[in-house]
Every structure is written in C-alpha cells, then in structure tokens.
Computed example of a mutant assay.
Amino acid sequence: LPYGWEQETDENGQVYFVDHINKRTTYLDPRLAFTVEDNPVKPTTRQKYDGNSTAMEILQGLDLSGKVAIITGANSGIGFETAKSLALHGAYVILACRNMSRGNDAVQRILVEWHKAKVETMTLDLASLQSVQHFAEAFKSKNVPLHILICNAAVFGAPWCLTEDGLESTFQVNHLGHFYLVQLLEDVLRRSSPARVVMVSSESHRFTEIKDSSGKLDFSLLSPSKKEYWAMLAYNRSKLCNILFSNELNRRLSPHGVTSNAVHPGNMIYSSIHRNWWVYTLLFTLARPFTKSM
C-alpha cells in the first residue's frame, strides 16, 4: 500500500482502506491509482507541476522509508511543510531548530497528521559555530545515514548585530552556518550516496555584488560593519553565497554520488520571514493576495 494507508476490515468482514494522511476511508484499493499504462503519454514538467502544486502532490506515490533527512529551520514555513511532506511519505526526518520548544510543537503537528511518522527535533543555532559542531556530533552519534540535507533556515531584514563568533548575523545564519554544517556532515553524505544537498536561496541574489572595483572578492561586504550594513543587501549577498557554494559543492561531490542544488522558493511567498521589521510585514501583507500560502 502507498505510505500512510492501512487495510482494515469492517463489521461485515469487508475490506476497506484508511488514508491517515488525508484522513479518509475508501473501499477502493488505492494501489489501483499507481497502475501503469501499457503506452503512457509522458506529461511535460509544465503539465505535471505549476504554482498551485503542493509538496504532497509532488511526492504522491513515493515511498521514502529508509531515507534520512535533516531540514534546518523546520519548525515553520517552508521548512515545516517540507519536513511534514517527507515524513508523511516514510522518511526519518530531523527538524534542526534553534528553539526546541517550537521544534517539538512542529513534531507534534506532524504526528497528529500521521502517528507513525518518524520525526524528531535537534538543537541547531546557526548563529553559533559551536552549536553547529555540537549538532553534527550529536547526529553522527546516531550512526544513521544521511540522504537529504535541506539548508532552509534564514533570517531576513534583521537589524545589524554580531554573533558570538564575531560575524554579522545574516551572513552567518544564512550562509556560513550552513557551509560549516555541510563540511561537518560531508563524510556521512558521501557514505550514504546517492544523497543530496538542497540550498534554499532566492532570486534576490541577482541584485547584489560581492566583488570590489578590481573584480576581486571583497570579504568586508560579506560581514559588514554597522555603518556599512543594509539588511536587504545583506540578505541578497547571503543568498548569492548559497548559490556559489551549492555550485562548487556539486562540482566536488557529484562524482561521489552527492548532488547539490540551490532553489528559489517563489517570489514573495507568504511565510514568517518578514517578522523582523513592520515595513516588511506591511509589504508582505499587501502582496498576500498574489502569493502562495503555506
């Protein structure tokens, strides 16, 4: 049976099927939905998926049991929906969250959807390189493979501040913390191949530059001083770093069975990322009718 389905028998001895994911029952065997035509017409990607497609629809029919996934920032927004979708299709999903209370709440919401989902929360604060190291060590102590690493956590529009490592927080949370996490887990990814890394980036990476006038990388732009800081530019630069890192990671690890891709989640997609400044909240609210809800 597809993941999330169970076979039961009613009081008359007739077999029926329970869909725990969508909370419905039917006497029609759901396996009939996955029969293969003799001469199928292969639909184009544009026909299969569009802006209205959900993660659950895209994963329909996939059995991810035996797969292990880590998703950063998975207690809300895109991260939560990704974690829920993977877990409801059988993957063992670790929600890597800064706030354990919110992470545990997210786990409970997934378990309400399907009580057999394999999900748990682990502490990860990307604003602390020591926390990243402790997370990697704790994960490795589980002695499980890692097939999917989704670097989703991010801050947007945050006021200037330095992390405990002395770096500008947007740069460290959005890029450097993930960079360090991937480095620490690279050996596990390689042993688990085929595996993949997904960097959640943004089209806003196009509206910035990290080179100086001579064309060389300007490190002062990556972690700027308070005087040189502008929240939107800091976010854009961090997203550009995500893409450059993903491209190079794929070049180095794809021969070993580990692929890396950077994705754009959608223009002005409605989530809680705008919460740091009321102006951003206002802009997102005005754009709400034209965006896709979580």
Results as ranks from 00 to 15, higher is better:
Ile71Cys: 13
Ser225Ile: 05
Met268Ser: 13
Asn247Glu: 08
Gly266Arg: 03
Leu88Cys: 07
Val41Trp: 14
Leu32Ser: 09
Val36Asp: 13
His134Thr: 07
Ala87Gly: 07
Ala127Ser: 15
His89Cys: 06
Met232Gln: 11
Gln14Trp: 04
Glu11Asp: 12
Lys142Ile: 03
Val112Cys: 00
Leu86Gln: 08
Phe80Tyr: 15
Leu162Ser: 07
Ile273Asp: 08
Val132Asp: 05
Thr259Met: 09
Glu81Val: 08
Ser225Cys: 12
Ala117Leu: 11
Met232Trp: 11
Met56Val: 05
Trp160Glu: 02
Leu286Pro: 07
Phe219Tyr: 06
Thr45Asn: 09
Val93Gln: 01
Ala154Trp: 08
Asp218Ser: 09
Val279Phe: 10
Ser65Thr: 15
Gln108Ile: 04
Leu176Tyr: 15
Pro289Phe: 14
Ser213Val: 08
Glu186Pro: 08
Asn22His: 09
Glu8Arg: 14
Leu146Pro: 13
Thr281Gly: 05
Glu120Tyr: 11
Glu6Asp: 13
Trp5Ala: 10
Leu32Ile: 03
Ala138Gly: 02
Ile110Pro: 14
Thr26Pro: 00
Glu57Pro: 04
Ser246Gly: 13
Gly157Cys: 04
Leu88Gln: 04
Thr72Pro: 01
His147Lys: 00
Arg288Val: 01
Val198Ile: 15
Val155Pro: 09
Arg98Trp: 07
Asp187Ile: 05
Glu120Val: 06
Ser131Met: 02
Asn75Met: 01
Asn236Met: 10
Thr35Tyr: 14
Tyr49Val: 13
Asp212Val: 01
